[in-house]
Simulated scan of single mutants.
Amino acid sequence: MADVAAKAGVSRALVSIVFRDQPGASQETRERVLRVADEIGYRPDNAARLLARGRSRTLGVMFTVHQTFHSDLIAGIYPEAERLGYDVLLSAATESRGEGKAVEALLSHRCEAVILLGSDAEADYLDELAHRTVAVSVSRRVPQAHVDFVHSAEGKGVRQAMEHLVELGHRRILHIDGGRGPGSAERRRAYRAAMRRHGLESEARVLPGDHTEQSGIETGELLLSERERGLPLPTAVLAGNDRCAWGLLMSLTRAGVDVPRHMSVVGYDDSHLSHLMPIGLTTVRQDAALMAEHAVRFAVERLEGEGVEPREAVLEPKLVVRGTSGPVPEA
Rank of each mutant, 00 (worst) to 15 (best):
I77R: 09
R83T: 09
L84H: 04
E104P: 01
G100N: 13
G85N: 11
V88N: 01
S119Y: 06
A102S: 13
L116E: 04
A81N: 12
G98A: 07
Y86P: 06
V114W: 07
P79N: 06
A102I: 02
C111L: 08
R110V: 01
L90I: 10
E82T: 14
G98H: 07
A92D: 08
Y86S: 02
A81D: 11
I77L: 15
E82A: 14
K101M: 13
S91T: 00
A113N: 07
G76P: 10
R110Q: 15
A102V: 02
R110P: 03
E99I: 11
R110Y: 15
Y86R: 04
E99D: 10
T94E: 05
I115H: 01
Y86G: 03
L89G: 00
L117I: 07
L89Y: 00
A93D: 03
E80Q: 13
E104T: 10
G118T: 06
I74M: 14
R97H: 06
A105Y: 07
A75F: 01
V103Q: 10
S108C: 09
L107V: 10
L89C: 00
T94A: 06
A93E: 15
G85E: 09
Y86N: 05
S108D: 15
R97A: 02
I74Q: 06
L89S: 01
E80G: 02
A81I: 08
S96A: 13
Y86V: 05
L89K: 02
H109A: 13
I115Y: 00
L73S: 10
A75K: 08
L106T: 08
G76N: 06
L89E: 00
P79F: 04
A75N: 06
L90P: 01
A75H: 05
V88D: 01
L117N: 08
R110N: 14
G100L: 13
L90M: 12
L107T: 08
L84D: 02
S96V: 12
L73T: 08
Y78T: 13
L89P: 00
E112W: 08
Y86M: 04
L117C: 12
A75E: 12
L117G: 09
G98Y: 07
A92G: 12
L84N: 04
R110H: 15
E112P: 09
G85R: 12
Y78D: 13
A93Y: 01
R110D: 14
